[in-house]
Simulated assay, not measured.
Amino acid sequence: MDTLNMRTGGEGEPAILFLHGLGATGAVWAHLTEAVPRRVLVPDLPGHGLSAPLPYYSFETLATAVARALPDRKPLVVAGHSLGGVLALELASGKYDVEVTGVLALGVKVEWSQDELGRAASFAARPPRVFETQADADQAYLKVSGLLGIAPTDPAGLRETEGGWRLAMDPAAFGVGVPDMTALLAAARCPVVLAAGEHDPMSRPEQLRALDPDAVTLAGLGHNAHVEDPSAIRALLERLGV
């Protein structure tokens, strides 16, 4: 199934495509999409929320699924968080028949240890865990998506199943791999803004500045800066003409 669950709204061009991170859903962008004077497109990525899983997860297969789900081929600004930031850069390469006029890549993890890769592969190989109660599943969703303490659970992020509740996320998505950020940045056919929260443990500002000296550090914010302070992200989008 190619069609993704897609939230849409607003008016004005170019539209903004918002792409969430691993484990979350498009709901993480809710406060920001209400504040931008543009048409907005907000999918649940494959294997997340109400969108169907993929047979195989890579940055290319995810970007292809997103491109196929777009309602038209009008120009877009793409804002992506973490995994979504990588996909935003993929879409900006020109390989997917999508005209991207600007990219905001927020909180992208660019350095991976062997231990981190091993843990990701282990998660990807496991069947979905079933929790006895919805409350337990809520907590698991918030931990996996990094939203514990800063946002409520999106009901679309859970599934009721035999024996209890599980996350809607397909565990196999953990096997997506490591992005070649140098190549992605070089291939982008539009302006790119890289940014990370000052206290983001996954995407250190100094790591981003090694890729782009103009990378932005968002003072006082963590990995989910778009949830913690949507106005800070709104200001970055203004750099891209939004």
Rank of each mutant, 00 (worst) to 15 (best):
V103I: 08
L117W: 05
A92R: 14
A151T: 01
K109L: 01
P171H: 06
G149Q: 06
L76K: 04
L76Y: 05
S93I: 07
Q114A: 13
A124W: 05
P128S: 14
V108W: 02
A67K: 15
H81C: 09
G163A: 11
E162R: 01
L76C: 04
A120H: 00
G157Y: 07
A105D: 11
T101Q: 14
P127R: 02
A135R: 11
Q134W: 04
A124L: 03
A52H: 00
E99A: 12
D115F: 11
E116H: 02
A79T: 05
Y96P: 00
V98A: 10
L167D: 15
H81M: 13
L147K: 02
V77G: 08
S93F: 08
V100Q: 07
L91W: 08
S51Y: 00
L147T: 05
G163W: 08
R126H: 02
G85Y: 03
Q134S: 10
D115L: 10
T61M: 00
R119T: 10
V144S: 12
V103Q: 09
K109G: 02
P155H: 01
L54W: 01
R159E: 15
G107T: 09
P152A: 06
V144C: 08
L167A: 14
L50S: 08
P152K: 00
L87Q: 02
S58E: 03
L104C: 04
V144I: 15
A52T: 05
V66Y: 01
G102W: 00
G85Q: 05
K74P: 08
G164D: 11
Q134R: 15
L91D: 12
T64W: 07
P75T: 11
S58Y: 02
L106A: 10
S113L: 03
L83M: 15
R159W: 05
Y141E: 09
V66A: 08
G85E: 04
A135V: 13
G102K: 03
F59I: 12
W112G: 06
F123I: 13
I150T: 11
Y141R: 14
P127M: 01
T101I: 12
E99H: 13
R129A: 13
A156I: 06
G163F: 12
W165Y: 11
R129G: 02
A140R: 13
D136Q: 15
Q139F: 12
L142K: 11
E132A: 15
V86H: 07
H48Y: 02
V66G: 06
A137I: 12
Q114N: 05
A120G: 03
E162Q: 10
E111T: 15
A79I: 04
L104D: 03
V110W: 04
L91A: 12
S58G: 10
P55N: 05
R126I: 00
S51H: 00
P75M: 13
L83F: 12
R119W: 00
A121N: 06
K109E: 04
V100W: 02
P128V: 07
R129E: 10
S82M: 10
G80C: 04
E90T: 01
G118M: 10
S93D: 10
G118F: 05
W165C: 04
T153H: 00
P155F: 04
W112Q: 01
E132H: 13
H48V: 06
